[in-house]
Amino acid sequence: MECKLKMENDILTAELDGEIDHHCAKSIREQIDLEIEIQNPKTLILDFSDITFMDSSGIGLIMGRYKKIKQTGGKVKIKNPSPNTYRVLKLAGMDRLAKIEREEF
């Protein structure tokens, strides 16, 4: 599991790679939270283009970051989830909290 963080024009992008489960969620959470605290971004983009698997631990991860960034008026976007990850996101109603940008399949 890899998490690359980029800050540009008030937008923090987290490029995630691999599988999101309970085992790796903590490390991703800590990396993103630290960067949010330092950079204070207006938007957090979670780039899921290279995520091959996600269970409900990923939902907890998104919800936690959503709550954190909302405190300073920021928002969360989710980019390119796979069809299977998108089903988990929809089941959890994540489309109501965050904008989900998908490529055409």
């Binding site: 409900s56 939902i59 907890g60 959890a92």
Partner: peptide, 17 residues
């Protein structure tokens, strides 16, 4: 009962899938 970082959706996901 898993705290802030857990969504509480484990069984819902199992039922749905």
């Amino acid at each position: 009962t898993g705290g802030e970082e857990r969504a509480g959706l484990g069984f819902a996901v199992m039922q749905s899938f």
